[in-house]
């Protein structure tokens, strides 16, 4: 039996936002096995978000990126994005519909699901995140934490094999952070979690990938390296 393709592979990836500028991500190499969780940690501006955006083909890059075995390119972008659940740093940015249920069900409707079935699954997804009662609410009436859960429900409703999460714990209170870590911990998908919240990252992931100035400075389970480097800052 062949093992499944890694959920995400970065091989010598460099990203420059302008041709002559210094790279935002510099020769980054790592891979994420199916179902594996890793925290991408680093200070602000270290390249975490850029790596997530490159993984779904939203920024041009040099090198090789593969999602579930498919190389990421302009041609394959739609196919790749169908396999990825993406959680933006600010949930307001990705909630595109006026009502909670519509936003969550959109991913299934787009894939041809019947509306009744899609809405039923959306309510189940919201229930699993503890916000099922909000299904019929207008989005503008939700708190930040509630919006974050709705956005997560929308990202995971299609059961994507890879979740890319950008600072999911930002702006959440400690109980909210614990609850979110619990929810994410129960999912089977591979996850790359960009965060500078070491506690949150550690709660979910054994593996920590430390970025500094766009380069991988450390990749492993040893937290002490990261703590030492960050305390030196």
């Amino acid at each position: 039996m062949t093992s499944p393709a890694p959920a995400l592979v970065f091989d010598g990836v460099t990203v420059r936002y302008e041709v002559d500028a210094s790279p935002a991500v510099d020769n980054v190499t790592f891979s994420l096995a199916a179902g594996e969780r890793a925290a991408l940690v680093g200070l602000n501006g270290s390249g975490k978000t850029t790596i997530l955006l490159a993984a779904v083909g939203l920024v041009p890059y040099e090198g090789d990126i593969r999602v579930c075995g498919t190389p990421v390119s302009r041609r394959t972008a739609a196919e790749v994005r169908d396999r990825v659940g993406f959680l933006f740093n600010l949930p307001d940015d990705q909630l595109l519909f006026p009502k909670v249920i519509e936003d969550v069900a959109f991913g299934l409707l787009r894939r041809g699901f019947d509306r009744t079935e899609a809405y039923r699954k959306a309510v189940l997804a919201l229930d699993s995140l503890g916000v099922g009662a909000l299904a019929e609410w207008p989005l503008q009436h939700l708190s930040h934490g509630q919006k974050q859960r709705v956005a997560l429900a929308g990202a995971m409703i299609t059961d994507p094999p890879l979740l890319l999460l950008d600072e999911p714990s930002a702006s959440l209170d400690p109980p909210g952070r614990r609850a979110l870590a619990g929810i994410l911990g129960r999912l089977d998908a591979a996850m790359l979690i960009a965060t500078h919240d070491l506690d949150f990252g550690r709660r979910l992931c054994r593996r920590l990938i430390l970025l500094e100035g766009g380069k991988v400075a450390n990749d492993g389970e040893d937290l002490s390296t990261i703590q030492r480097l960050w305390e030196m800052e």
Partner: peptide, 8 residues
């Protein structure tokens, strides 16, 4: 970017 990723 979100619209692109979500296939809006």
């Amino acid at each position: 970017a979100a619209m692109e990723i979500r296939g809006f």
